[in-house]
Simulated assay, not measured.
Amino acid sequence: MSVDIYSRDKKATFSDWKSVDSLSMGSGPLSTLLSDARDRLCADALAAGVRLVISEAWQGLEQVNRANLSSWLPIMHQPNGSASFWIGAVDARGDVVGTQAGVLLDCSTHSFGDKLSDLTFFYADPTEAAPGERCFCASNPAFETRGKVCYITAGWTHPRMRGMGLFHLIGRVVRILALAWWTPKWWVGMVAPETAPQWTEAKAGRRLLEARPTILYQHPSAGYDYPPLRLLRFCRAGVVLDMQALIRQS
């Protein structure tokens, strides 16, 4: 399937898209639950006027971000993970009107907080960092987050589609796919102050959201001052319970 999106200067076509509703949820003990939850979310997306697609091309996500900076913060440097994907909500015109991404991180020897602090979250070789690029982390849960981790990022909804529940619908799809393919122990993200009210448990499900910012990322050459960020974290048991609750509501 090919989907067209508009950038500020040209129209680009991405040919690696796959429909989320066609993806395998594996054959493990949770496969039926995850398939049912995925199908429910894809149906809800169609009812909202969008279809959900998946891509592994990070540059496509960066292009969508650049095309929508009037309503979206610049996304950070691509994380240094072993695998990644992003979900796009595509409307009837072929425009991407919502996104969220997942990146697989190995935090078995260095915690998520360690990786932020020494920039190995961003770079296999931290000497590749730009001049002045640094990250300060004072989050205890971040330093306690170890093992297989899915980093969630680039959550955005186009202004004309807000208020329809797409933001958290896409987020749940990212968590479902990561659980089916990677079986992480944790899902973590970094939340800007203006989006923190969107991450209530009633909206997002069982999660930890720190009460105050504990992470500061600085990248002077990016031309943008990133705000202080809060740590967001989901655990595997909580994600499973949320999917079970979703199915009971069907």
Rank of each mutant, 00 (worst) to 15 (best):
T195M: 13
C235K: 09
G102Q: 08
G94T: 00
A138C: 06
P74R: 03
C135V: 09
V188K: 10
S15I: 12
F121A: 05
S139P: 00
W156F: 15
W17L: 03
Y226Q: 10
W17P: 00
T145Q: 09
G94K: 12
F234G: 02
I54C: 06
F85M: 10
F136C: 07
V90M: 06
P197H: 08
W17E: 02
V149E: 15
P74L: 01
P29D: 14
C107E: 08
A180Q: 04
P159Q: 15
H110Q: 14
L61I: 13
S70N: 14
P193G: 10
I247P: 07
V50R: 06
C135Q: 08
E133D: 08
A101F: 08
A192M: 10
T200L: 03
V173P: 05
R172G: 07
K11L: 14
G163P: 11
G223Q: 07
C150D: 04
W58I: 09
L61P: 13
T109I: 03
E201Y: 00
T183R: 15
W186K: 06
I54W: 01
C137N: 10
A204H: 02
Y217N: 01
P184E: 12
P131A: 14
Y226R: 14
Q59R: 13
D21P: 00
R51C: 07
R206M: 07
E144G: 13
V173F: 03
R134G: 11
V3W: 06
N80V: 03
P29F: 07
W72K: 01
L208Q: 10
I152Q: 13
G49S: 07
A222L: 15
Q249W: 02
R212V: 05
G189E: 11
W86H: 15
K11Q: 15
A124E: 15
R66F: 08
W181F: 03
L73N: 08
S35W: 00
T153S: 15
R162I: 04
S221F: 08
S82L: 09
R230L: 13
P131E: 15
S7D: 12
I170L: 12
L209G: 00
G238A: 09
L179I: 06
I176Y: 05
T13P: 02
L177K: 05
V240T: 12
R93S: 12
E201R: 11
H158G: 13
F85N: 11
D125G: 06
